[in-house]
Each structure stands twice: as C-alpha cells, then as structure tokens.
C-alpha cells in the first residue's frame, strides 16, 4: 500500500500515529483500526496477485470494519451449527445488508442458511432436520497450534 494514502478507520493518516501523539494522550485504540477502504485496496492487490478468495475475504473484512466487536461475536456464534433457525439467519442477513452496509457478508450468511437447512444443522424443527446435532467435543488441534 502506498503509505501516504492510508487512512485509519478514524480518518487519521499514518503520520498522525506517532509516539508524541501517544504521549500526549491524543490516540486511542480506535485510531489503530484498519479502514474498510484500506482493506478493499488490499483486496485489489491480492486479486492482482491471483488470490481471488483472499480478496473476497478482505472485502468481507472491509464490511466488518463497521460492525462492533460484540456484533462480530454474535454473528460468529449465529453461524455455528445448531444456533439459529433458518429465519434467524435470513433476518441476520437482512440486517447485514440493510443496517450494516455489508452485502457480501449478508450473501454469505444467506448461502449458509440454505446449506444449513439442506444439511439439517439449524436449530428447531423448521429445518428439514434429518440428522441429529451432536454436541461440541473440542478441537483435536488444541495444544499444538
């Protein structure tokens, strides 16, 4: 990235992020948040290098810069198996699209809703649940990351 064009999520330039400003108490953690615009530029760079899925991920990330930490946690949890009904997920997708200006993430959630319904991993009986949800048993990679 051309460093003179970078703006933080709070609109500061890189030059603003210096030790004097830290000492003067002028900066907060929010000032060190990457901006959606920067992430979209990074997505273009990844795409140009042939990494189109990385680019898609960075574009979804760009959308999430405008989503609060807590809401990020909540969306993640909603996408885990057995947490939501089909309607919950489509409502979430609507909110992402209309309330949070996150159409790519919204489409991703809608896609998940369809597949989850088909595979029976939604909460409740509104899915064509053919399979029994099993309980999480942990991560075999835990302990050697």
């Amino acid at each position: 990235m051309a460093k003179n064009t970078v703006r933080t999520a709070t609109g500061r330039t890189l030059d603003d992020l210096n030790i004097e400003a830290v000492r003067a108490g002028e900066l907060t953690a929010e000032d060190f948040r990457i901006s959606g615009e920067t992430l979209r530029h990074q997505a273009e760079a990844a795409e140009a290098a042939g990494y189109w899925q990385v680019a898609e991920n960075l574009r979804r990330a760009a959308e999430l810069t405008g989503v609060s930490n807590q809401e990020v946690f909540d969306i993640y949890d909603a996408l885990r198996p057995g947490r939501c009904t089909y309607d919950n997920l489509t409502a979430l997708a609507d909110r992402l699209e209309k309330g949070l200006a996150a159409p790519l993430t919204a489409a991703f959630v809608r896609e998940a809703a369809e597949v989850y319904q088909e595979r029976g991993i939604l909460r409740d009986s509104d899915s064509s649940a053919k399979r029994r949800m099993s309980v999480a048993k942990g991560d075999p990679h835990e302990g050697a990351s």
Binding site: I34, N57, A61, Y76, L79, F108, Y116
Partner: peptide, 26 residues
Amino acid sequence: TEDTFIDGDDTPWSKAFLGAAYASRG
C-alpha cells in the same frame, strides 16, 4: 468431514466469517 466439523462446533461458513473478522481488525 461434516461430522468432525460439527463436533468442532463450527462450519466452513462460521470459520470463514471468523477469518474475515480477524482481517477486519488487521
């Protein structure tokens, strides 16, 4: 496999969302 994923309490979509979440914070 699907069952392993479910036992890990995730799906490819939840994991992909998580990846975007991390990237959104740099």
